[in-house]
Amino acid sequence: MAEGKRDIVEVLKAIDRRIIFLLIALAVILPLAFHLVFSVHSSPIVEAIFDKVESLPPGSKVLISFDYGPSTVPENQPMAEAVARHVLHKDLKLYMMAVWATGPPQTEVLIRNVIQTDFQDKVYGVDWINLGYKAGNQGLINAILLDLKGMYTTDINGTGIGEFEMMRDVDNLTDMSLIICIGSGFPGVREWVQFAGDPGDIPVAGGVTAVEAPLLYPYYPRQLLGLMGGLQGAAEYEAALVSKYPQFEASSEQAIQLMGPQTVAHLVIIAFVVVGNIAFFAERRRERRRKA
């Protein structure tokens, strides 16, 4: 009996890392292969953004800034798309821009995936506009807080800004009812809070990679309305959106889909942590007994 027990402890103690690697690989491959989906529940910090968009009267202006690049697309893109879908569905005006040079290609992806598929009736320049990227990092944010038209004299295609109906009553950022920065570094959510949200008293919400999110919690909820952290944050927004508007179920579940492998892998890691501790305590108890 004691013999058998020791064996298990010994096995657990000397577990080969390659077994862990194999299980992690399976934890990711199997859910992907079998399209395993878990139900996602949104947390208050994400719901805050959803509720804010939900509460805005039609015609309110919402700015989304694309401050990320291809390397964080898996985490950032679903957030941007879910929010844009929500904004357009609520008949809010959607303004898109970028503080990162790598942002506009992602904006294009969003236009293809969201606007051209689900909102073909929305008119460019009336319901949504793509302002594009301008250099200057936080300096740009600072400048458009005071004078947006001074910085953006044209849209991304070079058409004069005066030609667009939805730009007529926009002079600076304070005309926006909500700013959402989807970002993955500097400049990003922090800069939007520091250079637009705080000085202009404009609600700012953010969507960031999981690595960055812990560094942004300090701003919530005083300076930051809400925060989507990593794929989970994106999935939570999608879940909130789909539960209220089931018609988006087909188009708006990319993050929820990707959460399958994440959840399983997470559970595997949790199991390993538990097993590791059981082995550790079992060994310690045995050692104590031996001493006694």
Binding site: D147, K149, G150, D171, N172, T174, D175
Partner: peptide
């Protein structure tokens, strides 16, 4: 000639 440079709310 005075030229309009901007408008504010």
């Amino acid at each position: 000639d005075f030229e309009e440079i901007s408008s504010v709310p």
